[in-house]
Design a protein around this nucleic acid. Structure first.
Lengths: 211, 211, 211, 211
DNA sequence: TATGAATGAGCGTTCATTCAT
DNA sequence: AATGAATGAACGCTCATTCAT
């Protein structure tokens, strides 16, 4: 039974759906939700405007699916980076810097910035997005980080009575300086600078939480 | 007798301008720039739509003036708080916590959040806003903070070879946790919690930079 | 039977386009270009305002297409009348009167007057209309007339060394008196009066150009 | 009693009124009535917009006064030219050519063209203008011309049983070719060409009406 | 009288959405 | 399932006109 059957059959549908989601991401990222026209999204996806409506019903739903898409990917990447804290070697500083660098890259990713921009710009119109998305991504990633830090504390590698607060500060020392350095995601920052931010963040973090 | 003259003359102009700016702030904050209608702004200001255009020319200019207004106030408040670092007493920790609390209040202020929201939401459409506003506010406040920290270092009260980095981290330890706690400014945070964030921030900061 | 198929399919587009053009003619004629509202045109055509924009893009384009439409029809009618000068019989005066009467009717036609009114009223705003339309219609009709007169001269039926000048004067003797009689197209002129103008024009023309 | 009194007194009022009328002519000529803004007229006149309303009440009245102004001047010039037919010398052709040239210049005058453009463009909105102005100018000028031609006929210098028709045709042979040559007043025509038109008009006229 | 400010009605245009094919 | 055409509700902006000084 050859898998090559179905030339442009139900595969084409899925491809169109994917194309629309990608186009929506691109256009929303470029122009923002309100400014983006469904026309433009359809054009970028290479389909008719009505097809967008056949697949997603209305513009708001399209935004929600796009954001959910972005959030899922962002969470996945964050969790993958944080997980590595579960297998610490001898050099804790090096490990924290390694994980910190990964998190910094997650944070600076274009999709990650688009996600935050869309959320911040539109939560006045769709307040539930904040709870659903921010809760499912930021909070869960922070939770995972706190979990790992708690284990390290138990193992005597850190001195953190409040692992949630520690996670919060670790994250803060990474994200806020990157906000400034990337001018809210509008320009690329050379890798050296990212590394410097990470090194400084880990240094301060360890000064406060090393046993 | 005497002061009651000019019950609406020549003050009326200024008052209307002020009313429009305030209304613009309110409506932009509530609905975002693109979604906000000039109709709604005029209504909220209690003037005719055309009056808005007489004063500001077009919607974009109104946004720019509104943002400039917010930025000016935000900068002023931040600088006032930071200035207090110039007269340190014996208890550095207490001083840092005091200033940190003021900065936290600045950061949590509704106008401050609106400013950031508008910038983040609209910089795709008006890229220069980032440089003009973000540069004039965030960077200058950070500079002022770095200046004060440098003096403290010279006075032997801190150990900060790189005062800019120290300022960046002090600010990061305040703002990022508040982002999370206020859910991007969408809910009030009890004063205790703010204090806790400040205390933790100062603790970590001093752990890293106390001499 | 069989022709009743497609009661609104693919003809509907063309019909709507036609309806909009006709409505535009009517409203432009009634109110002039600037005064005419696209609302009114859409209403007169029985379509939504946006449909007008789907078909013509903007109001200016709608004016241009309307004018081009009128010009094409006017040129066609004029050329048809002039062509008859190519097959002269014995009675040249009768032929000239016949053709002159046709030209007079062309000139007095409502669409013809609207065309001139729109051109004269709007060429300040759209200067190219004069060249494009006036050139393609008036000049070509005058050329055709001059051609015919030249042939008649060659055949010895007229004495016209300068057929262009002769055509110009023939046309002048028709149009200018009709301008006055119809008060610039604002009132109908009884057929007798038109005939009188034509007779007088031909008389003067022949007095000057009969061999 | 010195006339030099009243420095900028009631004299200034009159000057402002004149300035507004001149500005109205200029702006109406340039942009047409509907398109012209009262703002623009006030600016061109160097007065405040409200001053225009103080003097003329509304835009329509301003148009009427402007048109009446133009019409009066046009009539005066036409009558002055026609009057010269009252004192014919020996050479009738030369006299007709001389008067014809004057009339041609009247016809080609910028103010004359503006008058016709405004009338043609706006008579749909203000139908009475046609009767009031066209009647008072064109008809009276044509009447005066017919009068002179009638006298010439009585004196045996012309053969015109119907002087009105003769006047109509004389005028037609001048105006219609000039319409074409000046492209409806949009370009200057060299004096030679005007003379050629006049010469040809007089030639045809005399061919038809010389005794 | 002359003005600067304010206004309300209206206009050209866009856009999310629906319908018939 | 996919499309092209059509729609109605807004929206940003303008303009003739009025009012208070």
């Amino acid at each position: 039974m050859g898998t090559a059957v179905d030339p442009a059959g139900s595969r084409g549908r899925i491809d169109k759906r994917r194309a629309i989601l990608d186009a929506a991401f691109a256009v929303f990222a470029r122009e923002g939700y309100t400014q983006a026209g469904v026309d433009a999204i359809a054009a970028e996806a290479g389909v008719a405007k009505a097809t967008v409506y056949n697949h997603f019903g209305d513009k708001e739903t399209l935004l929600r699916r796009t954001i959910a898409d972005l959030a899922e990917q962002a969470l996945e990447q964050n969790l993958a980076a944080i997980e590595r804290l579960g297998t610490p070697g001898d050099d804790l500083r090096a490990l924290l810097e390694d994980v910190g660098l990964s998190l910094a890259h997650c944070y600076c990713d274009e999709r990650s910035w688009t996600l935050r921009r869309l959320l911040i710009a539109e939560f006045a119109q769709f307040p539930d997005l904040l709870d659903v998305i921010w809760g499912r991504v930021n909070d869960r990633a922070l939770d995972a980080l706190a979990d790992r830090l708690a284990r390290l504390a138990l193992a005597g590698r850190l001195r953190a009575n409040d692992p949630v607060a520690a996670a919060e500060q670790f994250s803060a020392l990474l994200s806020a300086p990157l906000d400034k350095r990337t001018r809210l995601g509008t320009r690329d920052v050379p890798e050296d600078e990212v590394r410097a931010v990470v090194t400084a963040a880990v240094a301060t973090f360890l000064a406060a939480f090393a046993p």
